[in-house]
Design a protein around this nucleic acid. Structure first.
Lengths: 345, 345
DNA sequence: ATCGTCCGTGTAATCGATTCCACGAGGAGG
DNA sequence: CCTCCTCGTGGAATCGATTACACGGACGAT
């Protein structure tokens, strides 16, 4: 493969001049510029990013470590992150932690070894040692969605409080009183926050959140199923189950259907994180939607700010409630097209 | 950040020896090895992958360019690719082409600039110039899922012929005769092949595939909706719509529902590419399932074979039919020709 | 005419690793 | 005792770029 020396030879100039042309340095004659461009064209030369990175100590690459690629929420996040990064002239390397701290560490280490310019993390857990080390070592870093308290890193996330309040209000008008939640891992901020927001919203309506109505999940479909089964076995099962993420909602749907129960008639279902598929489930699922695209964009901008020496500030964007049919028909204007509802699994 | 020189100084040895220890070179004394390890530990030293890559001319990185990250099929593929690559000591950089040849080229170019060791591609289109150039230039490369005829690159894919035959047989026993297909872009191999397989299977039952029953889609949900609307507007609409990918099936479901029609009573629906969500739609969707994990694994192995100088052969794995309820209920007890039957897990 | 600037260019150092080659010590064989 | 190997080690070249510094020529000011 042709190197800069070949280009220099072909153009009859020194490598320095070639490099200057390549980088748009001002003091190059028009003639030299033309000759270099021609030579580059002729040789099909492409600068070696590895060599360039070694010299300049910057890779123009961002690392993104997420907890679960198969979760549509994170997929969309990854997509918007890549888009914004590309617009800013950066590439993105994605690491999938699969909710495993050791894998998260593996990716952080690998990314750091490659000398990425900055790191975007949605921490799996309380945070893995390698990740915390990186934060302390001063690697430009930004947390997205989830974060770790006490670590001095900007956080870009969405605040679901208002939306959860709206959700509970919605459920209340529908006459639902016994509301349960499938929580995420207590080690994650999102795991705790969503429960808190839910409990608060309940309190505003004079409702309680008994321990029996708090199920411990792990953001995976399987746990949603198990927890929901537990709920259904209760002497007084809840009237609505609120899943703290979309995968667990799916599991809940499974469990409910396996019992031969109908949503929303026998039991209601709501979820945190809206995804395209919720429109197509049976029934469509009411969900709290985060502004994922904006989150991705904001996160990249904050990180690039940090990288380029600017402050890089935390951002919190509001989530909103998307009402569908899984908690019961809304009263007024909405006429239910009410197609035949099949209940047998 | 500490470099190899610092380690050498700390250990009281030369950089050469440190490097040898780091790379497990045999001729190093036990004493030196210990001192280096200790120094590395003390300094928290991590080798600079950029420098190493420059010198050794290998990055131990694979590029994966897929057509659409938001498509669960590709997400799962990406995941299994990364897993296998990691097991073999490689990292993966994913590029999302979003079904756009220009973006595909952008990613191929970027990846090549970074001197990745090999490229895994699921070509968006007839192939972009940059990608074809890379193939001709001898970059180790393997096509996954889709490929480009006439280009000398191993192909790892799944053969849906048998499964499509099973599908048509299944529909036939259900009494469905007027079968339509939403095709993918003609420029993609998968776009064409699936139509061919469908037509062939139909022929085996003495059925025809009239032009009016072939809709042109682009593997996105929107096109599935449009095409399906067209089908429904026909004087004699099809009894079953077969979508050539999962996203278009979703669009079809939308269109059908918007008309107030019921699946499968009024019209049946089947899809190519099975995804977890198909279990939860209303009704669960019958689909042709590819062995995605195995495809990812095989693709990585073929690519690494090429990289390390071994042949690297093409692989074709069979897909299988997964019968659910979207084409009509099977009468209980009656054996259906379908090899696999799956209900809610 | 002389001097100082500015401009375009080239030479060479540098980034952080790997690796070829040379060298000295120590052991085996004659 | 001398020679020849082997082994462990270090010096220095190298990968492909960027960039500080030096240099020569043109040109404007005095």
């Amino acid at each position: 493969m042709a190197g800069i020396k070949d280009v220099a030879a072909e153009a009859g100039l020194s490598v320095a001049t070639v490099s200057r042309v390549l980088n748009g340095h001002p003091s190059v004659s028009e003639d030299a510029r033309r000759r270099v461009t021609a030579a580059v064209e002729r040789l099909g030369y492409r600068p070696n990013a590895v060599a360039r990175s070694l010299r300049t100590d910057q890779t123009r690459t961002l690392g993104l470590v997420i907890s679960d690629v198969m979760n549509p929420y994170f997929t969309e996040l990854a997509r918007s992150v890549e888009e914004e990064a590309r617009a800013l002239g950066y590439s993105v390397i994605i690491g999938n932690a699969d909710e495993r701290p050791d894998l998260q560490d593996h990716h952080v280490t690998t990314l750091l070894d490659r000398r990425i310019d900055g790191l975007l993390v949605s921490p799996t857990d309380g945070g893995s040692p390698g990740m915390l080390g990186a934060a302390r070592a001063g690697t430009p870093m930004v947390f997205v969605d989830r974060w770790i308290p006490g670590v001095d890193v900007p956080v870009v996330r969405s605040d679901g409080r208002a939306a959860v309040r709206d959700l509970v209000a919605h459920l209340h008008t529908l006459g639902r009183r016994r509301l349960a939640i499938i929580a995420g891992p207590a080690a994650t901020t999102t795991g705790r926050e969503r429960v808190d927001a839910f409990r608060e919203a309940l309190a505003a309506h004079g409702l309680e959140l008994p321990d029996a109505y708090i199920g411990q999940g792990d953001f995976q479909a399987g746990s949603g199923r198990r927890v929901t089964e537990g709920f259904l076995d209760l002497p007084e099962p809840p009237e609505v189950v609120f899943a703290a993420d979309n995968l667990m909602a799916l599991g809940a749907l499974d469990a409910i259907r396996a019992r031969g129960l109908r949503v929303p008639d026998d039991i209601g279902l709501a979820a945190f994180d809206d995804i395209p598929w919720f429109v197509h489930t049976d029934p469509p699922v009411t969900a709290v939607a985060q502004p994922v695209r904006d989150l991705g964009r904001a996160a990249v901008r904050a990180l690039v700010d940090r990288i380029e020496g600017r402050p890089g500030e935390s951002v919190t964007l509001p989530a909103r409630l998307v009402v569908r049919r899984s908690c019961g028909e809304d009263d007024a204007g909405i006429e239910s097209p009410s197609p035949v509802r099949r209940s047998t699994p």
